[in-house]
Design a protein around this nucleic acid. Structure first.
Lengths: 67, 67
DNA sequence: ACTTTATGTAAAATACACTTGACATTCATT
DNA sequence: AATGAATGTCAAGTGTATTTTACATAAAGT
């Protein structure tokens, strides 16, 4: 799973901590998701979509090799 | 989190077992998700979106009381 | 050089997504 | 009424998302 969180943050000049706050998760969670350590839960993906006012698919994308 | 899996299945005349097969999860997982026992993972939501050829948001919806 | 702020990372604990196996219930068909 | 297929559910186990705490590194400003 790829994601555009880092870019979306940069466009808004937000830190990982600020995004974490806005999504009610820890900074480490944002960092881990950005670094591809794990995928967010579906509820968290929905929160991000609401925050950025865009579809989940514009924030998170399956990488092609995933079945 | 609400979802339209049961309806989407019905439109296609699929059983829970058939949907589970198509998504590579157990029948119990489909049943639990349909009954609202838990939310699917984001990768599973993506698989469902691919299968039904529609955005994640047309299959799964946040219920309004969630923060 | 020093300080501050942002980011990367690790370990241990908790919560939850998902599996397998099993059984009970419902419903349609015979 | 009996059978079979679909659905509901439970318990125990595994894997992973997320938290907290803590420390290390990087970058930027003073």
């Amino acid at each position: 799973m790829k994601n555009r969180l880092k870019v979306l943050r940069a466009e808004r000049d937000w830190t990982q901590a600020q995004l974490a706050d806005a999504l009610n998760v820890s900074r480490q969670t944002i960092n881990a998701i950005e670094k591809g350590k794990f995928d967010p839960s579906l509820p968290l993906a929905f929160k991000a979509a609401r925050l950025f006012k865009m579809p989940i698919e514009e924030i998170f994308q399956e990488d092609t090799e995933e079945q």
